[in-house]
Design a protein around this nucleic acid. Sequence first.
DNA 1: GTCCATCTGAAATGATTGTTTCAGGAGCGG
DNA 2: CCGCTCCTGAAACAATCATTTCAGATGGAC
Lengths: 289, 289
Amino acid sequence: MASAKTSTVAERITGGRVGLTVAERKLSAALMADYPVAGLASISDFARAAGVSTPSVLRFAKKLGFSGFPAFQQALREEVSAQLQNPIEKPEQWSSKAPRGHILNTLADAAMENLGASLRHIDHHVFDDVCQLLGDGKRQVHVLGGRITGHLAGYLHTHLQMARPGVLLVPVSANHWPQHLAEIRSGDVLLVFDVRRYDARVQDFAVSARQRGAKIVLITDQWMSPVSRLAAHTLALRLEVPSGWDSNVVTLFAVEAMVAGIVRRNWKATRERIREIDRYFEGGRRGRG
Amino acid sequence: MASAKTSTVAERITGGRVGLTVAERKLSAALMADYPVAGLASISDFARAAGVSTPSVLRFAKKLGFSGFPAFQQALREEVSAQLQNPIEKPEQWSSKAPRGHILNTLADAAMENLGASLRHIDHHVFDDVCQLLGDGKRQVHVLGGRITGHLAGYLHTHLQMARPGVLLVPVSANHWPQHLAEIRSGDVLLVFDVRRYDARVQDFAVSARQRGAKIVLITDQWMSPVSRLAAHTLALRLEVPSGWDSNVVTLFAVEAMVAGIVRRNWKATRERIREIDRYFEGGRRGRG
DNA sequence: GTCCATCTGAAATGATTGTTTCAGGAGCGG
DNA sequence: CCGCTCCTGAAACAATCATTTCAGATGGAC
């Protein structure tokens, strides 16, 4: 593998630490003319574009410290990837009173970037399909979360119940999963939250649910839980924050967006259900408006 | 050579003109998760990243109108090239592919405005004081939420437990509150979530807790729960969204920020607690990483 | 002009990729 | 539950690619 990943390929070239030969200068010029895309084609294309032979390209890559042409390309791809994550416009400071490095500002930055990155990557057709699936009153919906995401599962469960009947929260404790599995019928929907430290038991549950004919919707992080291979729909979100933990702000956003998308579909029925629920809760509440 | 070069690959995919199969949706998701770099690796890498077979990738490319995988890659390279040349493209839309009025865009706007408005109003000294109070191991912390916010209370509870001992979640059901009140000692902290439709029973609980010598921290919305008159510290957040419901994205943000602020104070102890918890959970989990 | 060191590309090789084929399986309507 | 259609991936194949080898080219020193 290539050694120093501290510098970009361009820096290595112009760094001048290495004297370039004629062929190498041609390659350098061709690469800079359309950086770094020129280097992302095949080795022969790149050679042709620069007007040199393929072995020269290879020697070029090795001279720059890469193990071979694929390693060279890999570095270029990573640069592109990093560069394309163009940051969204954000306030230079969120909380004007707070110090620049205050955790409120830091995390707000991260939250916004996560939200932006997630939304840029979400396919809104997938999102709409998920809403339709979850809003389909003929299917039961089962919601499953892990130790942390279980709270989000609960949040979704509570809200989804206002929009439609037949919403079941899979118990947090895995001990009760076998019983719950028996509730799953063909055509049901299983909504799974599975992020980072993916839980093998969750995966097992998903396998069983699928065998029983359930459609699986997965909400996961950018590294994609293995459950995605079982899922009919997957929403991959960006959850990284500099605190060293993951942030579920975007996850909750996705949950609320789904609820909003579902409610919008059958607003009348939802309003009626909400009234019923409220009527019940009024009993224990004396509050104002 | 591929025919129409008028549209980007992303647009062809989300354009919806072509119905996507399961494998194709996975590919789409994987591609969007790191667009367009994910598609610039070899066909087998791309297939592996998406969790499908290589032939599926090929069919995907052909379905999008390309003569083969190389043509597909060529199109992606051209997009990268074009995009890297005009560097500053502001996201006037969050999900560029989704329609302007799509719920994802609407809610994302609202979320950002809420976050900004909330942070502008929060006094970071109050925030820091809250963190210190909640991080003080000599005080028990009781966390109380309502029907909806109870899930956020649970989220905070789970995380706070990783940072310190003596964190208690007040049961959701008001029936058990009398017993729980007996757990509250002088000097304890009661963290209350109370938003909109303020619950009178929550207020009653807060009154009792305060009589027992508890300090009260309140997380509420911009209209301020009446509990604020009892509270030592109040964080008022902006939670309005155009869906007609409230959004708790900012609330969760505040929760995570508090956790981060507390954890930062005593990181060593936290890490040890996390290890212990992990050790326990390892038993029921076979997962990777 | 001759020699030497260095650079370069044609050709051969081995490795990997992209493509096709085909049998099995999932999903769907009757 | 059965039969149909369409989707999917394992395996075989063909094409291209990345790499090595080696003879010829280049350019400077004397």
